[in-house]
Nucleic acid binder design. Structure first.
Length: 590
RNA sequence: GGGGGCGUGGUGCAAUUGGUUAGCACACUGGCCUGUCAAGCCAGAGGUCGCGGGUUCAAGUCCCGUCGCUCCCGCCA
């Protein structure tokens, strides 16, 4: 619903007409959704952004009848006529305008249309590449239109919410400086500075922190972020963040503010949401769900049986424990009748995530199991294991033994796979969760150095900051990820505003002071002039809207997305450029 | 960089597992039709089986390569 602009081409929206309009003389403009020609009578469903209405063309109106005979699907028409109640028995309850129809008095064809390469219908089944090439036709479909409307409604609600809390929307540059670590940058060559490049921002991170130094106090931006990494269903080379930053704020303040914001988004869509959201530490999340973004719409928690495996008699388990690994498992409820083939499939899945094998135990009846590894265990150990999983006859226990990270990830993925397969997930549910207390660093085996798990400006927690020198891997951060239904939809942190601490972190990351000056000097310099304690968060708009729209890919909530090979099928980008352009940029292709 | 799936009229699919004229539905074109809304009925047009090479008497089908789309691993602070 929007204020009608009564201009000469249109007095009403097609889909907004109802029995209140009966008798009204209306002028409509839109596309021919469908024409039904009965020879002596023609119906046209006229579609605009508001929906459909049926136009009736009677043969007595000879002139317009002739025009209507020429009309085809997707022609653009201007129609003048009178709204009238449909005759008894011809009401269409499937249409919001189904009680009425418009008796045409005048029709003009504003634009003819080729037959589209696919039908403009709700339940469309065509290859996505065709939809992307003709995106303007795809977006005419109600489903896609409503996705864009949903996205617009979310950003509108967010803007209103943040404005009401005194946030200022500030734009930050798209042409900026390449920074080390993180994702691969998209580079833009400078013409006036030959051999120099801008980078498109992976996020407005540094600028928003500088805005805090500038005294903006509360900033937000619906910001485009660019990352030149391989694509996935939920990853595009450019994505949109609801990005914000606040001064004089604590982690809990930010969290409750976000909970209110998300709640308001849900309310604007007539959905209820319970706040506060559940919180899990990173360690607990990995331990119980094998993921730092667990889907909590179902249980099936991981169970650690390392203590039982330590001296169980099964060499594979024992060796893993002796080399500091773990043995964990999940109970695939009711999967005790899985065939060898099905078990092989699960094994294959586990191997994708690095597991060298998958052990299983089918529970046949109380105290009895079928399993290739059961023979290694004493009855006592076996019972302890089945007890640990609360296994009942008909259940299937799956075990992975390896280093901790692999065990958790493999089982976490099996957990998800099984839940989907077994229908354990209530698709109508929205389960939010905060994951917190992330480790500050992870050790990069290849590069033999520490890397920041979040980013190098993340503040360590007060409780663990003292471990920086002794055990860096034990240092936790004041960072928080927002997870919805197993999808990371946001993340942020309290930033470091102490220069000494920042220098120490850079040191631990192996950045020399020269490198720091070269890459972040402007931020360090800014921090010398009075920096307020600050923190922030960014919400992934595409992912959030994707989940709200019930879609499996963010491409469905982006007007013009790119394919997995990062091309735009509509425009043909990326493309070659002329020699002249290259010369001007001082670039020679190999 | 790696693994899986798909590619046949405009669209979605089929084609006995190597066999003769590549079939079906929808869409499209024409005709008939005054109450349809997935309109109906009749007729018709439309194919370099993604592309290139190979095996064979014979390839949509088998082999090799390549391109496109897609899902995943790596990657994504």
């Amino acid at each position: 619903m929007y204020k009608s602009i009564e201009y000469s081409q249109r007095t009403h929206g097609c889909g907004l007409l109802n029995d209140d309009n009966v008798g009204d003389k209306v002028k409509l403009s839109g596309w021919v959704n469908r024409r039904r020609d009965h020879g002596g009578l023609i119906f046209i469903d006229l579609r605009d952004r508001n929906g459909l209405v049926q136009i009736v063309i009677n043969p007595e109106e000879e002139k317009i009848f002739k025009v209507a005979e020429r009309v085809r699907d997707e022609y653009v028409l201007s129609v003048e006529g009178e709204v009238s109640l449909r005759p008894e028995g011809t009401v269409n309850p499937k249409l919001s305008t189904g009680k009425v129809e418009v008796i045409a008095k005048k029709i003009s064809i504003l634009s003819a249309a080729k037959t589209p390469p696919f039908e403009i219908v709700d339940s469309l089944n065509v290859d996505e590449s065709l939809r992307l090439k003709y995106r303007y036709l795809d977006l005419r479909r109600k489903e896609m239109l409503s996705n864009l409307k949903l996205r617009h409604n979310v950003t509108t609600t967010v803007r209103n919410f943040l404005n009401s809390y005194g946030f200022m929307e500030v734009e930050t540059p798209y042409l900026t400086k390449s920074t080390p670590e993180g994702a691969r940058d998209y580079l833009v060559p400078s013409r006036v500075q030959p051999g120099h490049f801008y980078a498109l921002p992976q996020s407005p991170q540094l600028f928003k922190q500088i805005l805090m130094v500038a005294g903006i106090e509360r900033y937000y931006q619906i910001a485009r972020c660019f990352r030149d990494e391989d694509l996935r269903a939920d990853r595009q080379p450019e994505h949109t963040q609801i990005d914000m930053e606040m001064s004089f704020i604590t982690q809990d303040d930010i969290i409750s503010l976000m909970e209110e914001m998300v709640k308001m988004v849900f309310e604007s869509l007539d959905m209820k949401l319970e706040v506060p959201f559940q919180r899990l530490t990173y360690d607990e999340s990995m331990k119980r769900y094998g993921s730092d973004k667990p889907d909590l719409r179902f249980e099936m928690e991981l169970v650690d049986i390392s203590n039982l495996a330590a001296n169980c008699g099964f060499k594979v388990f024992e060796n893993v424990i002796n080399s500091n690994g773990v043995v964990k498992g999940i109970n695939a409820l009711g999967c005790g009748d899985y065939s060898r083939g099905q078990l092989d499939e699960l094994t294959k899945l586990a191997s994708v995530y690095g597991a060298k094998g998958l052990a299983w135990m089918q529970i046949i009846e109380d105290g009895k199991v079928k399993s290739p590894i059961a023979k290694f265990f004493s009855e006592e150990t076996r019972n302890s294991i089945t007890d640990a999983f609360k296994a009942k006859p008909g259940d299937l226990l799956l075990f992975v033994a390896d280093e901790k990270k692999i065990v958790c990830e493999a089982l976490g993925q099996l957990r998800l796979y099984l839940a989907k397969k077994l229908g354990l997930i209530d698709e109508s549910k929205y389960k939010f969760l905060w994951v917190m207390d992330f480790p500050m660093f992870e050790y990069d085996k290849e590069e033999k150095r520490y890397k920041a798990q979040h980013h190098p400006f993340t503040s360590p927690s007060k409780e663990t900051v003292s471990f920086l020198d002794s055990e860096p891997l034990s240092v936790k951060t004041q960072a928080y990820d927002l997870v919805l239904n197993g999808v990371e939809v946001g993340g942020g942190s309290i930033r470091i505003h102490d220069r000494e601490l920042q220098r120490k972190i850079f040191n631990l990351l192996g950045l020399s002071s020269e490198e720091v000056d070269e890459k972040f000097g402007f931020l360090i310099e800014a921090f010398k002039y009075g920096v307020p304690p600050h923190g922030g968060i960014a919400i992934g708009l595409d992912r959030l809207v994707m989940l709200l729209a019930g879609k499996d890919t963010i491409r469905d909530v982006i007007a013009f997305p790119k394919t997995q090979t990062a091309t735009c099928l509509l425009t043909g980008a990326p493309d070659k450029v002329s020699d002249k352009q290259l010369r001007e940029l001082n670039i020679r292709l190999k």
